[in-house]
Design a protein around this nucleic acid. Structure first.
Lengths: 66, 66
DNA sequence: ACTTAATGTAAAGTATAATTTACATTTGGT
DNA sequence: ACCAAATGTAAATTATACTTTACATTAAGT
């Protein structure tokens, strides 16, 4: 699964720290998700999508093998 | 977080078993998600939404406390 | 009433998401 | 070059998603 969190963050000029605080997780959680180290829960995906004003499927995309 | 998987399944006349096979998880995983026992990963949410032809936000909804 | 498919539930185990702490590296401004 | 903010990375721990097995309950058909 890939995601465009980094891009959306850049659009809004938002740091990992700020995003982390907005959705109430640690900064490392955001960093790890961006780095593709793990797949977030649906709650996180919904919160992130909401903040960026985009549908979940536009920020998170399935890949081969998912 | 609540979801409308049961309803969408009913619309399509699909069993938990069938849905489970389509997204490659156990039947109990579907059952537990429907029962609200836990929040699925974003990969599962995307797969489920895809099968029902609905956006993720329409099937999975945040609640107070999420 | 009987049978069968579908669903609900539960316990134990495994895999993985998320946290915390800590430090290294990069980037941008002055 | 220096400083500070932001990002990358990593190990250890905790929380939770998911599996497997197994059994109980419900719903529907005959």
């Amino acid at each position: 699964m890939k995601n465009s969190i980094k891009v959306e963050r850049a659009k809004k000029n938002m740091t990992q720290q700020e995003l982390a605080e907005l959705i109430q997780v640690s900064r490392q959680t955001i960093n790890s998700i961006e780095a593709g180290k793990y797949v977030p829960s649906t709650v996180l995906a919904l919160k992130i999508a909401k903040i960026f004003g985009q549908p979940v499927e536009l920020i998170f995309e399935l890949e081969e093998g998912d």
